[in-house]
Nucleic acid binder design. Structure first.
Lengths: 132, 132
DNA sequence: CTGCATCCCCAAGGATACTG
DNA sequence: CAGTATCCTTGGGGATGCAG
């Protein structure tokens, strides 16, 4: 007996496949690796932060983008929002278990890139001077 | 004049720090985690590919974006371009040692996201129904 | 096949002002 | 403090055409 599953297994037809244009995992990947998503998750990996702490930590985010990105990450179940009904308001953002899994890997990637920058910059100079 | 470097030193004054707006590592991170960069590196992680193979593998990339992203990755020293002076032309793209380091970590991240999609989708439903 | 050049649109995202 | 609402600009990126 040959099932559809058997016919297609072994290549990329796992339940979710980023390489497929329509796969929902691509959307989540973009939230996670987007311009601000990665930095926000990585910042929260070091501990929970309040809105404006996060804003200062991630140099260059606008209020709007921080708010918007946090909403997307919260919706995807990667970030938990803890609002305290005090005055003035205090809201803490922290990673969920799922979020820690993502952030841990993102953290590894980011530090690898940081540690590689000397080589990257050297490669750029070679590339540029080769066609000057 | 207060520079970003001065503002952040004492905290993360490692040679390179993605959290600082002006750090060159942020640019490279964006090449690597950009909309197409991540998928291209991840595709090449499984082996070298020709231009149109890559184009088919990464469902949805336009010719322009593939070409443009490959140039950025080549310039950063992550991808090696091997052109054969045949007719018709044949060009292979493969990861450099540095590129493999990045792609390996990216690959781990991407698969973690794919494997988490059921949970992500469930979280979205909870989030949406909670404010319907 | 492997691209580069051009046109063009639209949405990401910055700036600013306002609210609870 | 923690956001939301609005406006407006820029460039990301798709479509098309051409070339070696």
């Amino acid at each position: 007996m040959t099932t559809t599953q058997e016919l297609t297994e072994g290549l990329d037809d796992l339940p979710y496949n980023v390489f497929a244009k329509a796969c929902p995992s691509r959307g989540t990947l973009e939230h996670v690796t987007g311009r601000w998503g990665g930095l926000i998750l990585c910042a929260l990996f070091e501990g929970s932060l309040r809105f404006n702490e996060l804003r200062r930590r991630v140099d260059g985010v606008s209020e709007k983008m921080l708010s918007q990105t946090l909403h997307a990450l919260e919706r995807d179940g990667l970030v938990h929002r803890e609002a305290q009904p005090t005055n003035p308001p205090r809201v803490d953002y922290e990673l969920t278990r799922l979020g820690r899994g993502v952030a841990e890997r993102l953290h590894g990637l980011i530090h690898f890139v940081e540690d590689s920058m000397d080589e990257v910059l050297a490669a750029r100079e070679r590339y540029d001077s080769a066609r000057a």
